[in-house]
Structure formats: C-alpha cells, structure tokens
Write a protein that binds this DNA or RNA. Structure first.
Lengths: 214, 214
DNA sequence: GTCTATAATTAGATAGAC
DNA sequence: GTCTATCTAATTATAGAC
C-alpha cells in the first residue's frame, strides 16, 4: 500500500500544482496547507519543510504560473518594434488571443490575481513588482501607439490593462457561474475562440477596417 | 467604558456591513466570523445567534448588496420597451455608467461575486438564482437588440455579460493593484468617469456615430 | 430574547526521530 | 536531508446563564 518515495523536485512540483488549485479556489487565507498537502498524498508539515512557510509556497506557485504565461503569450516587447502600425496591431491581436486561451486553460492565474489585488499587503507588492508590472507597462505603451494610429478603441492607456484582463478572463475565472447561467461550457474550444474574436474586434476596431482596406 | 446596548436591527445591520468587507477581502472561507464581529465591537457567537450560521450571514450580506445595486442602477427592464433603438442604446449607456460608479463605490459586490463564481457550490447557486440571473437575462436581451441595430460592438450576447462586468469592475475590485501600478487613485471621480466613458464608447460605438448623425 | 462561557475542530509551524 | 509526532493558536458552533 506504500507509494514509492518521491524525489525532492517531484514533490515540490506536485505541491506547487496543488497549491495553485487551492489558492485559486479559496484565496490565500481560505486555502489550508493541510488540504494542499493531502491533495497530493503528502503531510502538511512537508510544506513547511520544502517551502519554509505558506507565504513562500504562494510565491513559488505564482512564479510558476507567470513562467507558464510568458511561455504561452510570448514576449510582447517586439510589438513595439514592428515596422508599421497595422503590423503592430496584428501582433497585439495575436497576443490578446493567446492571453484569452491561456486564461481559459489556466484560470488559476486570474483567480489568484483577482484575490491578491483586493488587499494591499506584501504578497501583492511582491507579485506586482516581480511579475505584473512588465505586462502592465508594455500594454500601455503598445496601446498608446495603437490609439494614435486609430486602430484601438477609445480607452485611456492608464486603464486599458484592467479592461483587457477583466473582459478576457472573467468568464474563465467564473466558469462555474457561466455554466449555471448559460448552460454552456466556457472551456469548449468554440466558446473560447468566440470570446477572443469578440474581444479583439471590439478593442481593435481599426484592425478589421484596415485589413479589408489593403 | 461600556457601549450602550444596541437594538436588534442595529446590530444586525452592523454585522452585515462588517461581513461584506471581510467576505470581500478574504473570501468566504478566509473570512472569520470572529473578525467580522470584532470589527463592530461584538462577540463572535452573536453572529450565530442573529444569523444562525456563517452561510446565513453571507446570504444576508449578499442580499443587502444586491438591494443597493438595484437602487443605484435601477430597473433595466424599461430599456427593452424604449421606442427606437438609439433611445434604447442611450438608456443602456446610462445603466452602464451607473454600474461603473456603483462598482467603484461598492467594490464588495464584485469582489464577492468573483470569489463566489469560482466554486460550484450551493452558495453560488443561491446567489445566481436569487440575484444574478435577472441581470444576466436583461443584459443579453438588450444587447441582442443593440447588436441588430448596429449600435453595439461585435460581442456575442452569450458572453457580453462577463465582458461588461469584468471590464467595468476589475480596476475597483483590484483598486490596491491599480494604486501600486499606476500611482493614481481609481476611486477619484475623474478616474471613474474616464473609465465609464471608455467602456461606453468602446461597447456602444454606434451610439457616438448615431448621436452626431441626428 | 440575548449574550457569555466553553466545547470540538482545524489552522500553520516546530522539534526531534529517522 | 527528510518526514512524523506534536504544540499553540485560531476556527465555528452550542449550551446554558442572565
């Protein structure tokens, strides 16, 4: 009945995956290290041994998520360097689509972010400076350019970041709510693509026009 | 040093207000009935006496919030009856603006909703059927009409509800994040109105055009 | 009818066994 | 170096005093 002993790294990875699910579902305070451990057949004190504290586990889990995000959406920096504005707009549209797909596949990211963003504490500051600020800055920069080019919708660069994140991720963050209210499955491929299409067409109305103009 | 004894209703109201803040900040599991009680100078067991259980207190707090929302945004039903489409569009734009202002003034609503919507449990179902479904239905109905009239942006009626709620409320739900990343105060009147302007102009592009056409 | 004292459970962290 | 046994504090609910 005994499970073969795991390697250090395997156990760490499993605890991180488990932590993501629990933190996303119940928030930092609501999640218990005991449940996180038991979900992967470990004992609660093993968390303190491998991560020193609940906070440190949270930091590790968040870092893991943002690694995956960067992998999935890719560096957006090149956007700024695209030759012409339409090019930049198309690249941004692509990044938006990839972000919507990531939000559908990994609802934990935006669940954790929306939990963390409600309270002003050290955890939030660490997450923002380590992982979020770069995304915020590149978004406002590219958006300003696309606005000037008449491609982007009339949203101020200072708040477009939250419009994008909120609109793109909420149906996946609240997937159970979507299922109850619509009777449809938001994680179905078609649902996700419809959502991405709507977001892109609405936020970048000048792109559809421009593309047919060429 | 003794506080004058409160009436039954005063204490209930104070506990509900306190519960809203705590549930919004930490989620249902993370919030403790002890903190909720202590915040208004009461003892933890008084919650069980006045509300029977933590769940019942949550239900009462949520009901109170949705009462306030209805008060602030008003019945949207009349929208459907407006004579012409532009009229309906203007009324919808007005409701959107009032919703944005409410989200700024009462971030607890969307914080609690976003927490509740992540887990499929009885609490979520009670909230959806009692308070949310009506808003979802009227939104999709009006949106379908405005889409057909060429006023609304190209977002499917089945997901526009989450686009609106997500885009309109996230900067207030995550106000601490906005403060850190932008250095601005999202609750400032100007910030809120700029946000509302952006949302309305982006979601109802046909309205600006139509208005100048007349 | 209302609140205080208290019970039963579960939280995260540590100390010491292996 | 890793995990198990255990500790202290905090959780919600109840029982009984006023």
């Amino acid at each position: 009945m005994r499970r073969p002993r795991r390697t250090r790294d395997d156990l760490r990875d499993q605890l991180i995956e488990s932590a993501l699910v629990e933190f996303a579902a119940k928030g930092f305070d609501g999640a218990s290290t005991r449940s996180i451990a038991e979900r992967v057949d470990a004992h609660q004190p093993q968390i303190n041994y491998h991560f020193a504290s609940k906070e440190a586990l949270w930091d590790a889990a968040v870092a893991h998520l943002f690694d995956q995000l960067l992998n999935a959406v890719g560096e957006v920096a090149p956007l700024d360097g695209a030759d012409d504005d339409i090019e930049a707009g198309l690249a941004f549209a692509d990044a938006l689509r990839r972000f919507v797909r990531f939000a559908a596949d990994h609802p934990e990211l935006n669940r954790i972010m929306v939990h963390a963003g409600t309270e002003d504490n050290d955890r939030l500051h660490r997450m923002l400076e380590r992982h979020v600020r770069a995304w915020y800055e590149i978004t406002t920069t590219v958006w300003t350019r696309l606005r000037d080019a008449g491609i982007a919708a009339p949203i101020a660069p200072s708040n477009v970041y939250w419009v994008i994140v909120g609109a793109a991720s909420l149906p996946f963050v609240n997937a159970p709510e979507v299922r109850v209210l619509t009777g449809t499955e938001p994680n179905a491929r078609a649902w996700v693509e419809t959502h991405a299409d709507g977001i892109v067409a609405t936020l970048l109305p000048g792109l559809t026009t421009a593309r047919t103009d060429r």
